[in-house]
Design a protein around this nucleic acid. Structure first.
Lengths: 228, 228
DNA sequence: GCAAAATGATAGTAACACTATTACATTTGC
DNA sequence: GCAAATGTAATAGTGTTACTATCATTTTGC
């Protein structure tokens, strides 16, 4: 259990925080408080003042952990990618068929998230909502090249790389493995967001999870895998 | 020519502005100035003060046209969708084959934008960059439901609807037409952004435009259209 | 039990979003 | 051609936010 925690945490780039939030109970309260508050009021309205009030601390203290709210969001997003990477790992280990492994990975990254209960300071369901609504703001900004140089997006890249490698196992000549995988990941977020707020941009199916269904079908057709 | 201009402008919801920027030269200067400045410094650093300095006006004057920078970005995004809708219309009119029409639409929405020169106050290339980098911020926020009620996303929905209808012409039983189209639109933006800033998340091909190529292939495989 | 580190309390600065007011210039209706 | 309407500019001001600095107090490691 502890290994998993340090495994996920170790993938988080040290430059994203000023002081590692996992080294203190206050740090963990910052994380859980942020996840709750930001999922409630959104990134734009979220401030360190509101957060410090919510967790009974002070603004200045939070600035000791994170330079600004952008990096705090980046931290949470990195954590999410590492967690997802681990989830994909568990869902593919000991499976021989690359087709089946890829399907499991696609389900893992497109299915609705449920509570994990392994990390008491992380509410995965709310974190998933934050990632769906806010995560593009982490990289779709002028800071992206600097943050990329600092290695902030490594866990995301590793996740895409791992899935792309399975794609290449299925078809070594396939030209767009990374493109396909990142389209599925980002697309799944978009579709979940549209389903909730802009339903005319998507197709919702009351029974079953049409989002996972759609992306599995899309990838299978693209790679000409027989639909089971 | 003028008809096209009013056609595109008429699709822009009146609630998004306080005073129609197309009714004065200053209004048009606001639009062109915003497109230049925002594509240079990004949405976060963009302020009405900087804009007014750039176009030799004052902050207060700009507030007479737009309530805030969020609505100004929304205006530009709406304009972009209307323009793209018009482009798709021109590229599909008088073509019988729905397969060919769909292919043209996908090219239109995924290809790199070139200068149109029909609108002297709009630099389509820079506007496209803004849409790629910033447009998700228009709807991925807490205001989304209110703005949606006010009809801000109608031109986007119409674009998706028009393309989805072609998909249904090809396969009336296809279950996810809107999902497929909105995945292509958003996906194309993501891939262009990744290609420039996070190349490890995509696959770039020096010759040719692999992004259009990828999405055409994806849709054809999904709808089981024979690759030409 | 003491030194070092973490936290809290408080204050302050600069920038920004946004509003209000007034004055003056330009256009338009008739 | 003149009054009314509209457009533009200049200025000031408010409240909020991002962020820093300082110092007192508490907690922790050894």
């Amino acid at each position: 259990m502890l290994e998993i925690q340090s495994d996920i945490a170790s993938k988080i780039n040290v430059k994203v925080y000023k002081k590692n939030p996992l080294t203190s109970t206050l740090g963990k309260r910052i994380l859980s408080g942020t996840i709750y508050l930001m999922s409630e009021i959104g990134f734009e309205d979220f401030t360190f003042k509101k957060l410090s009030d919510a967790i009974n601390s002070t603004e200045a203290t939070i600035y000791r952990y994170f330079e600004n709210k952008h990096n705090l969001l980046t931290y949470l997003t990195m954590w999410y990618w590492s967690w997802l990477q681990h989830k994909c790992f568990l869902k593919t280990i000991n499976i021989k068929s690359p087709q089946k492994r890829l399907e499991n990975v696609i389900v893992a990254i497109t299915e609705p998230v449920t509570l994990d209960n392994q990390f008491d300071y992380i509410d995965e369901v709310r974190l998933n909502q934050i990632v769906i609504t806010e995560s593009t703001k982490v990289y779709r900004c002028k800071k992206v090249d600097k943050d990329n140089k600092d290695g902030f997006f490594l866990s995301y890249k590793e996740l895409v790389e791992a899935a792309a490698e399975i794609v290449l196992e299925i078809d070594a000549k396939y030209a767009f493995p990374h493109m396909l995988v990142s389209t599925v990941i980002e697309g799944a977020h978009h579709q979940r967001f549209f389903a909730e707020h802009l339903p005319r941009l998507t197709n919702i199916n009351k029974e079953g999870d049409s989002i996972s269904e759609f992306f599995i079908q899309l990838v299978k057709n693209e790679l000409k895998i027989n639909i089971s």
